Simulated assay, not measured.
Amino acid sequence: MFTGIIEATGKVEKIDRNESNIDFVLSCPFTHELKIDQSLAHNGCCLTVVEINNDTYKVTAINETLEKTNLGFWNVGTEVNLERCLKFEGRLDGHVVQGHVDKTGTVESIEDKNGSYLITINYEESAEYMTVPQGSITLNGTSLTVAESGKNQFSVAIIPYTWEFTNMKHLKKGDVVNLEFDIIGKYVAKLLKKQNVI
């Protein structure tokens, strides 16, 4: 489990295809603290560390993960948002994030608001996945508050710290991003669907 508060960014150093899977080798500031079999969120997608070699580590994305996320768009040099799993001994600064990407969205626009940035994302809306103003959303692993919510799209306002400290600053119109919708909202939607309310 995660909080959506990005700890650092890492860099893709090597990509190897292994049948339908992809092995990614990455470097990051805390590689020396990682352990084999540790869970680590990459752009919000929980992957297991399977190998550590000096300053780099390896994770494997299976076909199901590649179909649901933007990992297949990564190249050598891609900057990735990283978060280690939550320790139950401190504050929950973001919101409850599982590290299970629900679907991808596409950047529709990025507006410079003279001190902040407003990013609008388009996605395929369904009864299970929706947003509400001031609700929580995870975008590339980052816990954010929905600023505006419309049909098949939502916007988030990014403060300067988040813009600089994460890979948000590299986003451009048309980019594919990972989305994890709020778990409480997903449970409510499923319950209402079972009762034929939606």
Rank of each mutant, 00 (worst) to 15 (best):
V176L: 12
V97K: 00
V96T: 03
D182I: 09
G150I: 09
K113F: 04
T162N: 03
E111C: 14
V176R: 15
E180G: 02
I121E: 03
D112I: 12
H95S: 04
V96C: 02
V176Y: 10
Q98K: 02
E89G: 14
M168E: 09
V107M: 08
A147C: 14
E89Y: 05
I183C: 02
S116V: 00
L82F: 07
E124G: 07
D102A: 03
G105F: 09
K172Y: 01
N70C: 13
V146F: 12
H100V: 01
G135T: 12
N81E: 09
R84G: 07
F154G: 01
N167Y: 09
K68W: 01
Y57M: 05
L171Y: 14
E128F: 10
G105T: 12
T69I: 08
T78M: 00
M168F: 15
G105S: 14
E89A: 06
E125I: 04
E111F: 12
E111R: 13
K173W: 06
E111D: 14
R84C: 10
T162F: 02
N122V: 11
D112L: 12
D102S: 04
F73R: 12
I184T: 08
G72C: 09
S143H: 01
T162E: 04
N167H: 11
L118R: 15
K58I: 09
R91F: 08
V177F: 09
I159F: 03
